[in-house]
Amino acid sequence: MNHATRRVVTGHDDSGKAIIESDGPAPNVKVREGAGFVSTLLWVTDETPANVDLRIDRADRTIAVAPPPSGTILRIVDFPPVTSEVDRMDGSALRQAMGVDHAGSAGAPSRHAYMHRTKSVDYGIVLSGEIDMLLDDSEVHLKAGDIVIQQATNHAWVNRSSDFCRIAFILIDANDPLAKKG
């Protein structure tokens, strides 16, 4: 599968005229070791409202899965088919590499090595392929064109098909619904 994603970034010149700042393959592409996910980071904001006149590549950085406080992330993830070895692996190293925690209900063990949770509202748009989203005790099958609005829930993306699944994710920082109140 060709993982290259064209990214066009607009901005303004010194006179205020709208311009193309960059146009080409998104340069920040990483493979998640152990899982084989290909993650293309397209843009990050560190504040709301977003500062849109920085004239820098805001994706030229290393960042965990979750967005920064008061920020957002736009990324494309290509999920390869899951192998039987991955189904049996311990997910703690993978979650550590992703910079996320497992937060199952009442400390329950993960039902899959990919289970994780971020403190964010995630808009997931399935661009191609199909995939299963596992929750603590349920799951849903998704296909190209389906959209998920995920609200800081514990989940795993498991591709049980024979082809890659490509999903665009927009993550927005959110309050943690499981944080201790008081």
Rank of each mutant, 00 (worst) to 15 (best):
M133K: 09
R88F: 07
D14S: 04
T153N: 11
S162P: 00
E139W: 05
W157G: 08
V158E: 14
S110Y: 05
R58D: 10
S92T: 15
L74K: 06
D57G: 05
R75D: 01
H141R: 12
S120F: 03
V158H: 04
V158Y: 07
G71V: 08
A106L: 14
A35W: 00
N175S: 14
I149E: 13
S15R: 02
A64Y: 12
G24F: 07
V29I: 13
D90Q: 13
S70N: 14
D90E: 13
A174F: 00
A168K: 00
Q96K: 15
K143T: 15
D101Q: 15
I167W: 05
A152S: 15
R75H: 08
F37I: 07
L135D: 08
R7S: 09
H116W: 06
D137K: 14
V31H: 00
I131C: 10
T40M: 03
V65Q: 12
T5L: 09
F79R: 09
S161F: 11
A59I: 03
G182Q: 03
A93W: 14
D14K: 12
L171R: 01
T45H: 05
G34N: 02
E130D: 15
V100C: 12
N2D: 14
S39Q: 08
G11I: 03
I20C: 05
H112V: 12
S84K: 15
T62R: 12
T83F: 11
K17H: 08
V100L: 13
S161R: 02
L54G: 05
T10D: 09
V121H: 04
T118C: 01
V86W: 12
A156F: 11
I19T: 09
R58F: 00
R55A: 14
L41G: 00
G107W: 08
R166G: 02
I76D: 10
S120R: 05
A168E: 06
S105E: 15
D87S: 13
H12P: 10
R55C: 08
I167K: 06
R95S: 13
V100M: 13
S92M: 13
L142E: 01
E47S: 14
D13K: 04
E33V: 07
I56Q: 10
L41F: 01
D122W: 01
G104T: 06
A4C: 02
I147S: 13
T118S: 12
P68G: 11
I170E: 00
I73D: 07
F169C: 06
N175D: 15
T10E: 05
P69Y: 01
P27K: 07
A152P: 10
G16K: 04
L134K: 09
N159P: 06
I125H: 05
A103H: 13
E33I: 04
V148M: 14
G34S: 03
K181D: 07
T48E: 02
V86D: 09
P68S: 03
D60F: 11
S92F: 14
N175R: 12
A156G: 12
N175Y: 08
M115S: 01
P27F: 00
S70I: 03
N154W: 06
L178G: 02
A108I: 08
R117C: 07
I76E: 10
V8S: 03
E139C: 09
G71D: 13
R55L: 13
R95Y: 09
R7Q: 07
E33W: 02
I76W: 00
L42H: 08
Q151S: 15
S161P: 01
N154T: 15
I125Y: 09
N175M: 10
